[in-house]
């Protein structure tokens, strides 16, 4: 039987690096802290390389869509044209902080993202209505009622100030909502620690190692 020695070797490297960084976080020994810093520097460089690999993957996916004439290939062509244009501007017209690059950022990227934000607000209102329609339960009513109450009382209505309304809003947000959020966050923190440690000790390997 053929044994793949690469897999346990890579897993051991991943586990050892993770353990050194973790111990370096708790134990401030000079050598260990330096090693931790070095590993983190490498991680930053590798993340930058991964970003390039990711963009190449993005371009390949859209190129294939254009080549095979899949639905939405016009949008893929637009994406590819924008990518090429941006790369050309950054390379030949003064780098990422040049006036041309900033023009692209301010007059193309920002308006597009702002438009998506506008679509998102409409989508959220629609989703809210659909939720009530889909599941008419006591929990949904509490969720919807609280969200509406907090939204309405967040505005300053001219000539409309019911006694105690603002205090009630503060009480809901600072006592009930904050307590609930903290409870959820404690659970999430425990889950995140367990997941991280499982990966670190090699009990769970959601990668090919």
């Amino acid at each position: 039987m053929k044994t793949n020695l690469r897999v346990p070797f890579l897993a051991a490297i991943a586990m050892l690096s993770g353990l050194l960084v973790l111990v370096g976080y708790f134990v401030p020994l000079p050598g260990l802290s330096d090693l931790r810093g070095l590993f983190l520097d490498w991680a930053v460089v590798l993340t930058a390389v991964a970003a390039i690999v990711g963009v190449v993957n993005l371009a390949k996916v859209h190129w294939r869509k254009v080549r095979t004439g899949q639905p939405g290939s016009v949008f893929s062509l637009t994406t590819l044209a924008s990518l090429v244009l941006t790369i050309l501007v950054v390379i030949f017209l003064g780098g990422a902080t040049s006036a041309w690059s900033l023009w692209l950022f301010n007059y193309a990227l920002v308006p597009i993202e702002a438009s998506l934000l506008a679509i998102l607000s409409v989508t959220l209102i629609y989703t809210f209505a659909r939720m009530i329609n889909r599941r008419f339960t006591i929990f949904n009513l509490i969720f919807a009622g609280t969200a509406l109450f907090i939204l309405i009382t967040a505005f300053a209505w001219a000539g409309f100030d019911i006694f105690g309304l603002r205090d009630l809003r503060s009480w809901i947000m600072q006592v009930w909502a904050a307590a609930g959020a903290r409870g959820i966050l404690l659970g999430i923190a425990l889950g995140a620690i367990a997941t991280g440690l499982r990966v670190l000790i090699g009990a769970d390997r959601p990668y090919s190692g």
Binding site: T127, M131, F143, I188, G191, A192
Partner: peptide, 13 residues
């Protein structure tokens, strides 16, 4: 609000 089966809190983990 938007999905049929949400995972709330640490249920994802």
């Amino acid at each position: 609000a938007s999905t049929e089966a949400p995972l709330i809190g640490e249920e994802l983990f």
